[in-house]
């Protein structure tokens, strides 16, 4: 999996769509893969909640004959949290504030999901990088 490409995709989505504040990618069982979130959000907890919510929504759609689940969106007065499935084995959380244009969000997220799906399922090309320690200390 190309970590840099994944990080670029996530960050690109946040900077491209006005109103997106945070993104996270997790495996379908709720384990965090990557997070581009502000400090006040616990990305691991978010990943677990998103997986639970998506699973619940999927089963709700199934049990009520609503067809294939497209996404789940939780609306709050200060914004919304959308969870999209990335293929069968992963999901992406997109948090946005109340200003976001939801149609645009879904529209722009769709191609990003496809690309992230292919990044996640791509065979390992990058060897275990050793230049991690220096980079980690530089972060906030």
């Amino acid at each position: 999996m190309d970590h840099e490409a994944l990080a670029m995709e996530m960050r690109g989505l946040r900077e491209q769509v006005t109103g997106i504040t945070d993104t996270a990618v997790a495996a379908a069982d709720g384990l965090l893969i990557a997070a581009d979130t502000a400090e006040d959000i616990d990305p691991e907890g978010l990943a677990a909640i998103a997986a639970a919510g998506l699973g619940l929504a999927r089963r709700t759609a199934e049990a009520t004959g609503r067809g294939a689940l497209r996404r789940t969106v939780a609306h709050g007065s200060h914004g919304c949290a959308a969870v999209y499935a990335v293929g069968e084995s992963a999901l992406m959380v997109v948090l946005s504030d109340e200003g976001v244009d939801l149609d645009r969000l879904h529209e722009e997220t769709r191609p990003a999901l496809t690309r992230i799906g292919s990044i996640l399922s791509a065979p390992e090309t990058v060897p275990a990088v050793s230049a991690v320690a220096g980079a980690g200390s530089e972060a906030v």
Partner: peptide, 9 residues
């Protein structure tokens, strides 16, 4: 962006 998974495909 912290990437947490070292998994392959």
């Amino acid at each position: 962006v912290p990437v947490h998974i070292p998994a392959t495909g």
